[in-house]
Structure formats: structure tokens, C-alpha cells
Simulated assay, not measured.
Amino acid sequence: MEIVTLPPAEERHELPQRVSPSETGVTPQENMPEDRAETPTIPQVAQPHDETPAMVKPSSMLSEKVLADPRSRKARKELAALAPADQIEQLCGLEAMAQVGTWSKELRPDRVVAYAMADPKMVGNAFSADGAALHSKRDWFKLQFKCELTPDHKKVAAFEFLVGDPIPRKDWADHSLPDESGSLD
């Protein structure tokens, strides 16, 4: 997993904040020569057609409820024993399984591998896995997700995901995906 941190504020090269005309007391027309005082025409550029599917953005988070269930006592104990980076990955994977299972009637997720096809990234409070894999029944599916955590990294604050095509069985070994003959429970 790649953990990315932002440099201290004094080392960042941030753009200055935009100042509105009302804050300066000068309107745009006052800065223009008289012959250009009218509103300029901005040419419209045709945007390329974006065929990227939209991410599913659930309105409620489910991992906290799953972990609060008495049947998750062992999972809570094991999660607490992990290193902080692994806790984040497992918590977000749990959220992914719960969200996909709620979203789809066909999929029955029982495992997520966040690093299957690309290393996940951690930036601030956001864990993202663009190359994850999701196991359901007897297949692995491509999965992409972004998991926003609370500042203490103990709860999921926001989540979005996109389930992709099945991963061909011939590619499973290349991505360290176990060839299971059913669910992994």
C-alpha cells in the first residue's frame, strides 16, 4: 500500500484564493478599457464524450453497523489487533462488501482484495483502491472504490464504488486471487 502525505503548509505551492470583485471594491467593467466594457464572449468548446461509468455513492455507511452486530465480536477483536494501515484497508474492504451486497441482488461479496491489480493509496483521510478485486460466489470482479474516513480513521464517513467486469479465471494467479470453489466463509 502506498501512503501519501501532504507536505507541511509552508512547503505547499498553493494557488492564491480567488478574490471577488465586491471584496476589492472594483468591478470588472471598471478595469476594462471603454471599448471592451461589455461582457466578453467566451467560445464554447465541444467536450469529448466521457464513457466512464459513474461511481455509486451510497447515502449511508454500513461497516459500523456490521461491526456492532454481536456476531462480529471476533472481527472487531482481530481488527483492533492490526497495524493502523491494515485496519484502514480492512475497514474499507468491509464497507465495500456491505455496500456492494446491498446494491446488487446478484452479487454476494465475501472478500475484497484492495491491492489485486494496483496498489491502493492513502491521501489524508481518503483510502482509494482503483485496482481492487471483489469475490462473489465463485468469481472475482474488478472493483474500484474510494473510502473517506473520519479523522481518527476508525469509521467510514463517505464511500463510493464501481463494480467492473469479472476477472478471467486465467488471470487470478497473476493477481494472487485464490481459486476458490465457492464462498470464502
Rank of each mutant, 00 (worst) to 15 (best):
residue 10 E to F: 03
residue 10 E to S: 06
residue 12 R to N: 08
residue 12 R to Q: 15
residue 13 H to R: 14
residue 14 E to L: 15
residue 15 L to H: 10
residue 15 L to G: 08
residue 15 L to P: 06
residue 17 Q to A: 09
residue 18 R to H: 06
residue 18 R to T: 05
residue 19 V to M: 05
residue 19 V to C: 04
residue 20 S to A: 10
residue 20 S to L: 11
residue 21 P to S: 05
residue 22 S to E: 12
residue 22 S to M: 08
residue 22 S to H: 09
residue 22 S to Q: 12
residue 23 E to M: 12
residue 23 E to T: 07
residue 24 T to H: 06
residue 24 T to S: 15
residue 24 T to Q: 07
residue 26 V to S: 13
residue 26 V to W: 14
residue 26 V to Q: 15
residue 27 T to N: 10
residue 28 P to S: 06
residue 28 P to V: 03
residue 29 Q to V: 12
residue 30 E to S: 13
residue 30 E to D: 11
residue 30 E to I: 04
residue 30 E to L: 12
residue 31 N to R: 15
residue 32 M to Q: 13
residue 33 P to W: 08
residue 33 P to V: 13
residue 34 E to S: 13
residue 34 E to D: 14
residue 35 D to V: 10
residue 37 A to I: 10
residue 37 A to K: 15
residue 38 E to N: 12
residue 38 E to M: 12
residue 38 E to K: 13
residue 39 T to N: 11
residue 39 T to S: 11
residue 39 T to F: 02
residue 40 P to Q: 00
residue 40 P to W: 00
residue 41 T to D: 13
residue 43 P to G: 01
residue 43 P to R: 02
residue 43 P to F: 00
residue 43 P to I: 01
residue 44 Q to W: 11
residue 45 V to S: 11
residue 46 A to E: 12
residue 46 A to V: 13
residue 46 A to K: 14
residue 47 Q to A: 13
residue 47 Q to C: 06
residue 48 P to W: 04
residue 48 P to F: 05
residue 50 D to C: 08
residue 50 D to E: 10
residue 52 T to S: 15
residue 52 T to F: 09
residue 54 A to H: 09
residue 54 A to S: 12
residue 54 A to C: 05
residue 55 M to L: 13
residue 56 V to K: 01
residue 57 K to E: 13
residue 58 P to Q: 01
residue 58 P to Y: 00
residue 59 S to Y: 08
residue 62 L to M: 14
residue 62 L to I: 05
residue 63 S to L: 07
residue 63 S to A: 15
residue 64 E to V: 07
residue 64 E to T: 11
residue 66 V to G: 01
residue 66 V to D: 01
residue 66 V to W: 02
residue 66 V to C: 02
residue 66 V to N: 01
residue 67 L to E: 05
residue 67 L to F: 03
residue 68 A to Y: 09
residue 68 A to F: 07
residue 70 P to I: 04
residue 71 R to S: 14
residue 72 S to D: 01
residue 72 S to T: 02
residue 72 S to C: 06
residue 72 S to Y: 03
residue 73 R to Y: 01
residue 74 K to R: 14
residue 74 K to S: 10
residue 74 K to E: 10
residue 76 R to E: 08
residue 76 R to A: 05
residue 76 R to F: 02
residue 77 K to V: 04
residue 78 E to V: 02
residue 78 E to A: 10
residue 78 E to T: 06
residue 78 E to I: 02
residue 78 E to L: 08
residue 80 A to C: 09
residue 80 A to T: 08
residue 80 A to H: 09
residue 81 A to Q: 15
residue 82 L to K: 13
residue 83 A to H: 11
residue 83 A to L: 14
residue 83 A to W: 06
residue 83 A to S: 12
residue 84 P to N: 04
residue 84 P to C: 06
residue 84 P to D: 06
residue 85 A to R: 14
residue 85 A to C: 08
residue 85 A to Y: 10
residue 85 A to D: 15
residue 86 D to G: 03
residue 86 D to Y: 03
residue 86 D to K: 07
residue 88 I to P: 00
residue 88 I to G: 00
residue 88 I to V: 15
residue 88 I to D: 00
residue 88 I to L: 11
residue 89 E to K: 07
residue 89 E to H: 04
residue 89 E to F: 01
residue 90 Q to T: 15
residue 91 L to G: 00
residue 91 L to S: 00
residue 92 C to S: 01
residue 92 C to H: 00
residue 93 G to Q: 03
residue 93 G to L: 05
residue 94 L to N: 04
residue 94 L to Q: 06
residue 94 L to P: 03
residue 94 L to S: 06
residue 96 A to C: 12
residue 97 M to P: 03
residue 97 M to H: 02
residue 97 M to T: 02
